[in-house]
Nucleic acid binder design. Structure first.
Lengths: 117, 117
DNA sequence: GTAACATTCACCCATTTAGGTTAATGTCGA
DNA sequence: TCGACATTAACCTAAATGGGTGAATGTTAC
């Protein structure tokens, strides 16, 4: 799946903060790294993981690397989550309905003195 | 964040398949593991990661461990994604509007011979 | 009681990640 | 040209992951 890279990229608070920063405008690597206490190098590695997922793109201009937020993978993942949520909802509802039906049959066969909880 | 565990748990196709299986009804560990070619032990480890994220719960009955799908963490994550998507949308729209405004000012100052693309 | 079954535990291995430090590379500015 | 700056590269360590095997534990069934 292509979802893996996106999910892994999002599964880290530092990276989520980087994305939040980029949502308010493009920025160079150093600017993105400034708020963090970890080394610039570590931030650079986080950025690479975000790039691998396609969530961040890079435009090099001289010694400056400008980073941009790319929403496409995020939107795809959101879509997948909504679909999965619907799928689960339908399945679980169907199961519950089936269980109710079984209970009703059992209740009809046995003398309905005490209903099964 | 609590999102981390959920995202990590979802970032693997084997685990996503396990969740899909459980969406169609509770099952024992062995039943869940049956379709996979990897060892039962590996599947057991995947299940532990899903449990850590709260996506799967376990009810032990004798030697059988029955697993259930739990939607709460998934729904929370979906909510976070929708909120983040909206946040990005608003930010990026605002940025674009600001850029247009700047362009308009520049166009008004300079003789509007050739508009900046 | 004992054999078969369900599951985990305790290890082993290779890979990835997150962090670090110290070069190396390339670019800007005076 | 030369120093300062921006960024990555190369290496190190510790921890987590995904896979494996074989033993241990507890339960069912005969």
């Amino acid at each position: 799946m292509d979802l893996d890279d996106t999910l892994i990229a999002l599964a880290d608070d530092t990276r989520r903060q980087i994305l939040k920063r980029l949502a308010s405008g493009d920025a160079r690597v150093t600017e993105v790294a400034a708020p963090f206490e970890i080394s610039l190098n570590s931030v650079s590695k986080h950025i690479r993981i975000l790039e691998r997922a396609g969530l961040v793109s890079r435009r090099v201009s001289g010694r400056d690397h400008f980073l941009s937020l790319e929403r496409a993978p995020f939107d795809e993942l959101t879509q997948w989550m909504l679909e999965t949520r619907d799928f689960w909802t339908r399945r679980l509802d169907a199961l519950e309905a089936a269980l109710r039906a079984e209970d009703a049959i059992a209740a009809a066969k046995n003398p309905p003195k005490r209903r099964k909880k």
